[in-house]
Structure formats: structure tokens, C-alpha cells
């Protein structure tokens, strides 16, 4: 009598694959980002860089076409909104000069020396995060251009994030909105320091350690604190206060901050060649 037996091979193959994956995970964890795995990663990234550059220019019109289809309704709305804004802008022009003077005075008062004489490396954002869960971008400068892990990344407006991984020609930047990102910050008006942590792509940053007695005003600028051993120099604009509230019997305020840089539309950035080591 023939007896049907389900083959054990697929399960054996799966077991083998799971064991291999667990081994790789352990190997990566144990070497702490310095081992063979990272060499392979860097090599792959550098090897694919020219292909990416070539295909990027070829595919960009196609990608723009699809983006246009996906966001057609939004583009139409944006177009109408821009027309209205343009009309309003004419009226506002007269007020701008005065506002700029006030802003400059405020910045001078707060001593917000943004970047100062720190050497910078200009870079182009070549890739948004390859993952749907990780908030990083890839820039077209790497070790060869003097970029190292830990260096702050900024735009003209303010802080973008920090370099977390570098290959010969590319670097990965962890955005301030990433949930693993923490930045030491100072509230510009009160001088109170805290820690701003990312909470995801569309969420404001959360600032911890703000004393309940501190007066926090909406729209108040928030800059990097640059306290000792901080990986960021002091005075880089991070964002503006969105909300501040004191829950009953809390030992700290619940403060949220809107990033000053539009992190979803990055094109050019600057890497500050800054080291916190004395």
C-alpha cells in the first residue's frame, strides 16, 4: 500500500536559512559595525553607485511621471494655492525687509552662530531611505571627501541629521525625525536645555527634560545645545515649538517641535566636519 508522506526537504531548507540568517545577525551584532559585513555593505554600495547615478538620470523623468499621476489632485491644489500665495506675496514684500532685520537682531541676541568656521562638505541627496520604516537618506559624498560617521548634516535652514555610515563614495544620514535620533537642544528664549527625539516622518520631535517652571512659547526657535561631548556644534537651528503642555503632577513639560528643515524634500545638504573630541 502506498503511503503519502509529505517531503521534509522544504522544512530542512527553511531551517538552514533561518540558522544562516541568525548567524549573520549575530556576526553583525558582535562585530559592532566594523567587521566583514560592513566591508561587504560598503563595497556593494560603492559598486552600485555608478549604476545608480546612470539610471537615476535615465529614470528620473519616468519617476516624475508616476509621481505626477499619483499626486495629480494634490498638484492641482498646490498650483491654485501657489497662485493665491503669489498675489499675497506682493503685499507682504514690503514687510519682509523689516521682518528680516528683526530676525537678524533676534539671532544676534541669541548668539546663534550657525556653523561658524567649521569646514563643510557639500553633497547631493541621491537616495531616500531604501526601507519603508527607517528614516535615512543617502548622499553622494563619502570617506574620500572627508565625511566620517557622527558628523552633523545641515541645510541653509538648519539641522538635517547626522552621518551614521560611510563608504568610499557614499554616506548614510540618519534624519532627526528617525525614532532612534536624539539631539541635545536649547530653547532659544529661556536657554533651557533638553533632548529632542524623533517620532517618525510626519510627527514633530519630542523634547524631554524641560522643566515645568520654564515658559515655553509657540513658535519659539530651538537650536542645538552643543553641550560637552555633544556631536552637534551649538546654535544650529533644529525647529520651532509646536506645543508645550504641563500634565498634572509631571516633573517635565510635554514639548513638541516642528523640524525647521523639510526633511521629505531634501536635495542639497552640507556635512559639517565637526568633531566633539577636544
Amino acid at each position: 500500500m502506498a503511503v503519502y508522506r509529505r517531503s521534509a526537504r522544504p522544512r530542512f531548507v527553511l531551517l538552514l536559512l533561518v540558522l544562516t540568517a541568525v548567524t549573520l545577525l549575530t556576526l553583525d551584532e558582535r562585530t559592532g559595525g566594523l567587521g566583514v559585513v560592513d566591508t561587504v555593505r560598503d563595497t556593494a554600495r560603492d559598486a552600485l553607485a555608478p549604476v545608480r547615478d546612470a539610471t537615476d538620470s535615465a529614470f528620473r523623468p519616468v519617476a516624475d511621471f508616476f509621481q505626477g499621476i499619483i499626486h495629480y489632485g494634490r498638484l492641482e491644489d498646490a498650483n491654485n494655492r501657489l497662485r493665491e500665495q503669489l498675489a499675497e506675496r506682493d503685499a507682504e514684500l514690503a514687510m519682509v525687509a523689516d521682518a528680516q532685520r528683526e530676525r537678524q537682531e533676534l539671532l544676534d541676541q541669541q548668539k546663534l552662530e550657525f556653523a561658524g568656521d567649521i569646514p563643510t562638505v557639500a553633497a547631493r541627496v541621491v537616495l531616500a531611505s531604501p526601507s519603508n520604516l527607517d528614516l535615512t537618506v543617502e548622499i553622494n559624498r563619502g570617506r574620500d571627501s572627508g565625511v566620517s560617521p557622527g558628523m552633523p548634516v545641515v541645510t541653509g535652514a538648519g539641522l538635517v541629521g547626522r552621518v551614521v555610515d560611510v563608504s568610499r563614495t557614499r554616506a548614510t544620514v540618519l534624519l532627526v525625525s528617525n525614532p532612534t535620533s536624539s539631539v541635545g537642544v536649547r530653547l532659544a528664549a529661556s536657554g533651557e536645555v533638553g533632548v529632542a527625539s524623533g517620532r517618525g516622518a510626519r510627527s514633530p520631535l519630542q523634547v524631554d527634560n524641560v522643566d515645568p517652571a520654564t515658559k515655553v512659547a509657540p513658535d519659539e526657535p530651538v537650536v542645538t545645545s552643543g553641550l560637552q561631548q555633544s556631536i552637534y556644534p551649538p546654535g544650529i537651528p533644529v525647529g520651532r515649538i509646536r506645543t508645550a503642555r504641563i500634565p498634572p503632577e509631571a516633573v517635565q513639560q510635554e514639548v513638541t517641535v516642528d523640524p525647521i528643515v523639510d526633511l521629505r524634500r531634501l536635495t542639497f545638504v552640507k556635512v559639517l566636519q565637526f568633531s566633539s573630541k577636544p
Partner: peptide, 20 residues
């Protein structure tokens, strides 16, 4: 995994389990 910052082998593990 080659192009992510997460531990190497994490996507490999998830994808192989789901594909199986």
C-alpha cells in the same frame, strides 16, 4: 540588507519565512 542600516540578515530572515 546590503543597503540598510539595520542588522544584516534581518530582511533575509523575514523574507524567507514569509516566502516559505
Amino acid at each position: 540588507d546590503l543597503f540598510l542600516q539595520t542588522p544584516f540578515g534581518l530582511s533575509a530572515l523575514a523574507f524567507s519565512l514569509v516566502a516559505f
